[in-house]
Design a binder for these strands. Structure first.
Lengths: 138, 138
DNA sequence: CATTATCTAACAATCATTATTATTTAAATT
DNA sequence: AATTTAAATAATAATGATTGTTAGATAATG
């Protein structure tokens, strides 16, 4: 799990500046297991910095993604979600409310690309998305 | 794999009309393993029906998805893709060119939602997305 | 504290997708 | 075969998430 300190250090190491807005975003992401969308991050930052721009949120999340510090989740058909936990893990999403929970189980021993496709793709990893209905929605 | 005949029958059974545009879309989807986006379907239909509207493509794909006749793939961050193969299977996508191939292997014996989450979600299925670089891109 | 490269905020633009609506048409009925 | 009608099409506008642009602001360094 990425901490404010680690994110700060990583950005500094890449010649990037640590602004109050960015620090706020780091704080929101630290220990965050809610898989927020850009808008959800925006709304929370806005409470502290009412003048913050949506662009700043998008740009910072893009930066963190490019640095490998957050995972961009393509699982909700409507919008991207962000996960500060970059360790390999999986997700379950509610088809109704789109709530996402983590699935920490190592399937790597059993889930492998079939040999017939190994010559066509150099695989860097895999993502399992469980789909269902959460208990709040049924 | 859904055939033109099956799709025609299904729509008829639901009181829907079989138009030339729809038949063309059915034909394009039949035996199609290229996981086209709506735009790719649109372009192919347009060659035969130059006046076809993008809306028609979207509406028809939505209809087919709602009837369970095509699978909507949320795997490419930029756009949705459509798969007429509704049997359970998985995919590998090239992070560079976004080419998607099918992965026909049954992982269901090993991939299950952990017991700790079973009380929170009623799971209907899962989707595995392998990520990598295809041989054309490296 | 002065410099400078980067970042922010505001705004416009883009792109995929969806909504609206008047017109057309498939197909059931006469 | 003509009529009817519910549904589909095409054209268009609208939406909503995301990205691009740019002028001014600011973090970080010496």
């Amino acid at each position: 799990m990425e901490t404010v300190e680690k994110l700060t250090k990583t950005l500094r190491n890449h010649g990037m500046k640590i602004t109050p807005q960015r620090l706020m975003i780091f704080k929101i992401l630290e220990n965050n297991t809610s898989h927020p969308s850009a808008e959800q991050v925006f709304k929370r930052v806005k409470k502290i910095y009412p003048t913050v721009s949506f662009t700043t949120i998008y740009k910072t999340l893009e930066t963190l993604r490019d640095l490998g510090e957050v995972q961009e989740l393509i699982i909700d058909e409507d919008r991207k979600h962000y996960d500060p936990n970059t360790d390999t893990h999986h997700h379950v999403i509610c088809s109704n409310c789109k709530k996402i929970l983590d699935v920490f189980e190592d399937f790597s021993q059993h889930v492998k690309l079939p040999d017939t496709l190994k010559k066509d793709y150099t695989v860097s990893g895999f993502q399992i998305s469980f789909h269902g209905i959460c208990k709040d929605c049924n």
